[in-house]
């Protein structure tokens, strides 16, 4: 069954396009602190994590919420997942720039999770997400925190691998 919430090209579509364009331009313009492959990895991580959760809890049998104008899978839905990519890139970017260490991790991840939650709230208001099927929105906070913690671990594994490769004479 397809639930149709809206049929016009309005705020939810513009939100995706504008966010994606602005963030991509920002990636392009900002000074590069990662290698191309690392940048791709951090970008893809966001898309991967976003899709992992959405294609798990928003499809049957759980089907807790819908994305965009209707409950079918559309090109705009795909783009909305690509939109997660720049966010995870900038998460790693700012993490590296601020040299986050020790207990500051908790604050950093909490601030990012609250920022993500705020964006999600805006997305619900403009009709990008539809939680009518009973998804409790506060569940997103632990999901964001888990994903961001994994991204921090991923960042450090990449760093350790790079260092060990350098020591063994293998440039990555």
């Amino acid at each position: 069954m397809t639930v149709i919430y809206d049929t016009t090209f309005n705020w939810n579509e513009w939100f995706i396009i504008l966010t994606l364009l602005t963030m991509s331009v920002m990636i392009w313009v900002m000074p590069k602190i990662f290698s191309v492959t690392e940048g791709i990895a951090f970008f893809v991580f966001g898309v991967f994590a976003g899709m992992l959760f959405d294609h798990t809890i928003s499809v049957e049998p759980w089907d807790l919420y819908d994305v965009n104008d209707d409950s079918s899978y559309q090109v705009m839905d795909f783009l909305s997942y690509v939109m997660y990519g720049p966010f995870s890139y900038f998460f790693a970017y700012i993490y590296k720039r601020l040299h986050i260490q020790g207990f500051f991790h908790i604050g950093f991840i909490l601030v990012w999770s609250l920022f993500a939650f705020l964006l999600e709230w805006i997305a619900v208001k403009i009709g990008l997400f539809h939680f009518d099927k009973g998804y409790p929105m506060y569940w997103s906070i632990p999901i964001y925190m888990t994903t961001q913690s994994l991204l921090v671990i991923y960042y450090h594994v990449i760093r350790i691998q790079r260092l060990s490769n350098r020591q063994s004479g293998w440039n990555s």
Binding site: T37, I40, V44, F48, Y154, Q161, W170
Partner: peptide, 10 residues
């Protein structure tokens, strides 16, 4: 390498 394998996986 690890980075390439994880990108391929994702």
């Amino acid at each position: 390498n690890f980075l390439q394998n994880t990108i391929l996986y994702m």
